[in-house]
């Protein structure tokens, strides 16, 4: 397999993936998008790859590159549409609701007045999140109207226009932890729990990770969530609600896993490498039941599938 690994900085995850891929004999070109110029009318270079793996830490870089490459007919993992949905908490919520997947209640208001009304209609405590953002940054748990007014005013005054969209989420009284399930090619391959005394349980904010046994319920729910957002490789964050059971909180399209290998006991980069290789097999590319349905809707994929079908029939 000839694969391009896109990045904007090589973290531990990217070097682990590179090692897993090259040790399996795959030809990997590591491409730093900070030094790349795309010519959308000249796809030749990119069509030489069987697959492009997006591992950019920058969402802007991920979306720009995958949009251009998919327009050329290059297969990207994850797809641009999936990246767009996963990266935007509001769009993730819409996808989960559309597919009937349990998720915390959300209210959305545009601007200060509607934003505050959105929080009030949800009740307190509530969690305010930027619709685009990661690693637990700028999350705020507001316990009363005073706090909500302060956050909304700060967003309105100091933030960019995208910060004027107030995304308020029901606060889930979780038991000091959340669950993360890693999905690769439609399969739940590993899971961890992230525990913290703080209500934010991101490892980037100091939460402690430990291994977790995958149950039928966590597997089913996480796979459904990844299917809803159209991703192929993703990590699903689940919250344990005392009254409603498991709820899907987020789906991460460019998951970090350096601290989840030893804790889960699963060689996650190896599983990803094997899955990527399976995508380039002609028959597997058209018959893999793990493929999200949304993939088939991509015109680029349809073109690929038709040629692959013809090739497979020969």
């Amino acid at each position: 397999m000839r694969l391009a690994l896109l990045h904007t900085r090589l973290r531990t995850e990217e070097t682990l993936l590179l090692d897993a891929l090259t040790s399996r004999g795959h030809n990997v070109e590591v491409i730093d998008l900070r030094a790349e110029v795309f010519d959308p009318a000249s796809p030749e270079r990119w069509l030489g790859f069987d697959l492009v793996l997006d591992r950019c830490v920058s969402l802007t870089a991920s979306l720009t590159a995958t949009r251009i490459l998919e327009s050329m007919g290059v297969r990207c993992v994850n797809r641009a549409d999936a990246i767009e949905v996963c990266s935007d908490k509001m769009r993730t919520t819409l996808a989960l609701i559309r597919d009937g997947i349990p998720t915390p209640a959300v209210r959305i208001g545009i601007g200060a007045q509607a934003g505050l009304a959105a929080v009030e209609s949800l009740g307190y405590p509530a969690v305010l999140k930027p619709t685009i953002g990661s690693w637990g940054r700028l999350l705020a748990r507001v316990n009363d109207r005073d706090a909500a007014e302060a956050i909304v005013e700060h967003r309105e005054t100091l933030g960019s226009t995208t910060q004027h969209v107030i995304y308020a989420q029901e606060h889930i009284n979780k038991p000091g932890r959340d669950l993360r399930v890693f999905i690769v090619g439609g399969e739940a391959i590993a899971a961890i729990e992230r525990a913290s005394d703080h209500w934010v349980t991101n490892t980037a904010r100091g939460a402690r990770a430990s291994g977790l046994i995958i149950t039928d319920e966590t597997s089913r729910l996480s796979r459904a969530a990844v299917h809803a957002v159209g991703a192929d490789i993703a990590a699903v964050d689940l919250l344990e609600c005392p009254t409603r059971g498991l709820l899907v909180n987020e789906v991460n399209h460019s998951m970090e896993f350096r601290n989840s290998i030893s804790t889960s006991g699963v060689d996650i980069p190896a599983r990803i490498a094997d899955h990527l290789a399976s995508l380039t097999l002609p028959v597997a590319r058209v018959s893999n039941p793990c493929m999200p349905v949304a993939r088939v809707c991509n015109p680029c994929d349809l073109r690929q599938s038709e040629s692959e079908l013809a090739e497979a029939r020969r």
Binding site: V57, S87, S134, N252, H253
Partner: peptide
Amino acid sequence: LAPKVEEDWGE
């Protein structure tokens, strides 16, 4: 020195 974290960084 590595670039500082930007607004659109994450997973």
